[in-house]
Simulated assay, not measured.
Amino acid sequence: MSRVRVCRKPNCNKLISFEQSNPYCSEHAGLYHKRNPFAKQQRKQNYSMYNKYKRDKEANAFYHSKQWRTVSNHIKREAYFTCQCCGHTYDKTGYLVVDHIIPRRVDKRKQSDEDNLWVLCKRCHYWKGELENRIYQSQSLVVNMDTSKKWDRGKMTEWILKHEHK
């Protein structure tokens, strides 16, 4: 008998061949994305420009700290390198982002709180950013704190998936 493994989709227990490069069964095969060989270089250039010209210095220092790298890697491993919104998984670095549910700019006390972090693919992270731009329009920290209590992980996931598949 050949070696088998379980489909990577949460709650799917279908068996697939161990040698199969796609970690999903035939029903969920569309969730797997292969890597673009030139993506790393492009991503590195875009990220560098963002850090240099758009991100504030304090946030840049935080996101490049050893503490953040440790927490971020831990969260990704716990999520099995799978987007906690749409369920896509990625086998290479750079496609997943550890995101703050309540943004760091709204509540810095939760910047390293694991309950305030989740793993998103780049696409879901884009839509999460669009949602944040809509709901955190106030300059008032108090208003933004109140707003953050209305948007939990489930509500955000629902909004992201609705807008992502229009």
Rank of each mutant, 00 (worst) to 15 (best):
S2W: 06
V4A: 13
V4W: 03
R5S: 06
V6M: 12
C7L: 06
N13V: 04
N13A: 07
E19G: 01
Q20E: 15
N22M: 03
N22I: 00
P23D: 02
C25I: 06
C25G: 05
C25T: 03
S26R: 08
A29S: 15
L31E: 03
Y32L: 06
H33I: 08
R35Q: 14
N36W: 00
F38M: 12
N46E: 12
S48T: 11
S48E: 11
Y50I: 09
N51C: 13
Y53A: 05
D56W: 04
D56C: 12
D56F: 04
N60S: 11
A61Y: 07
F62T: 00
K66V: 11
W68F: 05
T70E: 09
S72Y: 05
N73W: 08
K76E: 03
R77K: 15
A79Q: 01
Y80S: 15
T82D: 02
T82C: 06
T89I: 02
D91K: 02
K92N: 13
L96E: 03
L96V: 07
D99Y: 05
H100F: 06
H100N: 00
I102K: 08
R105Q: 10
V106Y: 01
V106L: 04
R109P: 00
K110F: 10
S112M: 15
N116L: 07
W118P: 01
V119Y: 04
V119F: 03
L120C: 13
C121D: 11
C121P: 01
R123S: 15
C124V: 05
H125R: 07
E130G: 02
L131A: 04
N133Y: 09
R134F: 00
Q137M: 10
Q139S: 14
L141Y: 04
L141I: 12
V142T: 10
D146M: 09
D146C: 06
S148F: 05
K149V: 04
K150S: 09
D152H: 03
D152M: 08
R153A: 14
G154T: 11
K155S: 11
M156A: 11
E158V: 07
I160F: 02
K162Q: 14
H163E: 15
E164Q: 15
E164S: 11
H165N: 15
K166D: 14
K166T: 12
